[in-house]
Design a protein around this nucleic acid. Structure first.
Lengths: 230, 230
DNA sequence: TTAAACTGGTGAACACCGTTCAAACAGCGG
DNA sequence: CCGCTGTTTGAACGGTGTTCACCAGTTTAA
């Protein structure tokens, strides 16, 4: 009964080849210059064949965005986790979020696909597909909760809100960098670091946050944040 | 000799018609669904005609982005300026930056074109065209300088850096909102307000900012921030 | 072993797209 | 009236995402 399995393997191999070709093309030549036909040529299939693996071109990039979330959530270097354990709660938060910015440097195209691009908005409506991201999100929130309990942040700080504010600052700097909106004397890395420090300081200062608490588990966009852990 | 003038007026009218049609189309149907041919049909010209007014499709959106900067820099309601004078320095900063977020709500497509979209990156390389924005940028920086002098911010806060950090936070929240990455219980308005308050509090807390000072006048991206004033 | 069913891949086509260019056209100065 | 100048056009080029009838190879059933 190995036939079905082999067929499935073959199918999966072609699927992977499509994704790999798409990824290579779009990191090499940018989003705009990727076409179904070029992908097809690269994997030596006809353009039509791709449509039996993905229902549309957007679907391919949606899958790539998923890949990006997985990449961000599950970093390559495995020393990270133990390394992280050695840090105090605040330093851990800083390291975790700094990784998001680092990711935007290492994989700008992925990052844009995941956080900036509005042409792949369905990310927010695919609950189950990003279940793995939900978990890493919970890790981050737990980490933030620990900070509150350790007295690093005042008890008025809701972890979910803090997470969004921290992300927003880095996301903003990353967006400025990626869309090439910074001056020549401005170092995006330093700005990102400053943004992180400033938001952390702001949270510690005990500003009254107006955002209501929100249920962590069932937000449709748990996919949003997921770095390291898992 | 009114002929030349009339011809010029006519030309300008067609140019405007193209921009208006493009704007209407892209706020109504989104960036993706705007084509030269649709614009041409809307203004009852042939597609080719458009190319004697704009050198490419991107050029049209570049012009729209410019329009957006002008819109953001020169708000419609004129009572704003006096209204602003009545506030203390910190409240003024808050009002000025809050307007950026409000703009992202009122004109999401413009906002995306101006700050998020990477398909119009030339914004950062068109010095003279955004001279008007440089001025409003200087206003904002002067406003921040006033805050430092008034003791609202510690003297370690460089206005340029502060501007970027404030923008980044709001930009991040706006990006999250526009790309539909927030959960159902999360109110982007409240988050934006919290982001603003948090960054301001962080700046006041006197974090050591690592970003170097940068020349204000000659950065290629002075176009970046310009709200009200002028 | 043979026939039938199914499968994945293909070529050709459709309806678009941005862009170019020779030709037609308009309105103006002489 | 003619020639000139600048605007507008139709047609075309090469590209795009996507669909669909068809075909060959493989699997299954008789």
């Amino acid at each position: 009964m190995g036939i079905k399995e082999r067929q499935e393997r073959d199918r999966e191999a072609v699927r992977r080849a499509i994704l790999d070709a798409a990824r290579e093309l779009f990191v090499a030549e940018g989003f705009r210059n990727v076409s179904i036909r070029k992908i097809a040529e690269r994997i030596e299939y006809s353009p039509a064949a791709i449509y039996s693996y993905f229902s549309s071109k957007d679907d391919i990039f949606f899958a790539l965005a998923e890949e990006g979330f997985r990449l961000l959530g599950h970093p390559a270097n495995e020393g990270r986790r133990e390394q992280l354990e050695a840090l105090d709660p605040l330093e851990r938060i800083r390291a975790v979020f700094w990784r998001v910015y680092e990711f935007s440097r290492q994989h700008p195209e992925y990052f844009a696909l995941m956080f900036l691009d509005r042409s792949v908005p369905r990310i927010s409506r695919e609950y189950e597909r990003f279940a793995f991201a939900h978990e890493t999100k919970r890790h981050v929130i737990a980490e933030l909760e620990r900070c509150v309990q350790a007295g690093v942040f005042p008890p008025t700080v809701k972890p979910v809100v803090a997470m969004r504010l921290l992300i927003a600052g880095l996301l903003g700097i990353a967006a400025l960098r990626l869309s090439d909106r910074l001056g020549p004397g401005e170092d995006p890395d330093l700005l990102a670091s400053d943004a992180l420090d400033t938001v952390i300081a702001g949270l510690r200062a005990g500003v009254v946050l107006k955002s209501a608490e929100v249920d962590v588990a069932c937000g449709p966009t748990d996919a949003l944040v997921d770095q390291q852990a898992s």
